[in-house]
Amino acid sequence: MSGQEMIGANPSVNSKWNLRRQTLAIIVISVLLLAAMTVSGFLIENEKLSVNLEARNSSPSLDHLFGTDWLGRDMLARTLKGLTLSFGVGLLTAFLSTIIALFLSLLSSWNKKIDHGVTWLIDLFISMPHVVTLLLISFAIGGGFKGVVTGIALTHWPSLTRLLRAEVMKVKTEQYIGVSRQLGKSRWWIACNHYLPHLMPQIMVGFILLFPHTILHEAAITFLGFGLSPEQPAIGIILSESMRYLSTGMWWLAFFPGLSLVIMVGIFDLLGNSIRKLIDPFHGQR
């Protein structure tokens, strides 16, 4: 991710809006947008989602910005509910994946054998196509919310683990770790007091940059029919339902919900990369 040109203005032209400020502004705006998306989904009451046969199949208008479906439900309300759900699943799974990644990377600092084991596990998990692994785990658990969360949490840790492990390996050879050892500190103490603070920036950025993947994969697996149940207003459900109505020309059923998901994922991407630029400027700006 390269810095300046992505943001637009040349930082040297306007000194008041230097790169740091621009990045901060982007972070604030993205957080606000995401908050608005998620909170509005919470605030929408369920009656907005109720069936209203008089207004069914209407194309986008001022009353229904995203149109209505074959039962007259407002698509904007359904989409916002879906985004909130996506955010929730994304938060939970990204958190779990990060925990797994942190645990495994700290574990690999233990000794060479365990490190080999962890590397082998990473290779094992990336040797299957992502979607296939997800599908298999979801199948084993029997689908539903539990299946999706377990599946996504168990498939998204490898890349972050690799990153964190490399970092741990680098720090491990530092002198102060050796000194700490000689002073009789336990491995646990060293992990908590030396490795963890060092890994924190990577963990934060990695956590946020996991969101785009987890959200997209949740939608994908739900779309395929292995994920959330059809009663839930998930984006994947909305899109797979819309497939039956596309041939009759009801394009808004698929177009707007999907576009909203793209925007949400895009904002997460932007947010993660901006935070990286802020806390790790040397790598972030390349």
Partner: peptide, 29 residues
Amino acid sequence: DRLIKGYCYVLSATPTFWLGLVVVIVFSV
């Protein structure tokens, strides 16, 4: 450059199946 990069970032945030649906809407329907 900015155009191509923006296009790529948007694409990487796009779910494959949604793009498929849009393609169906445009080219088939």
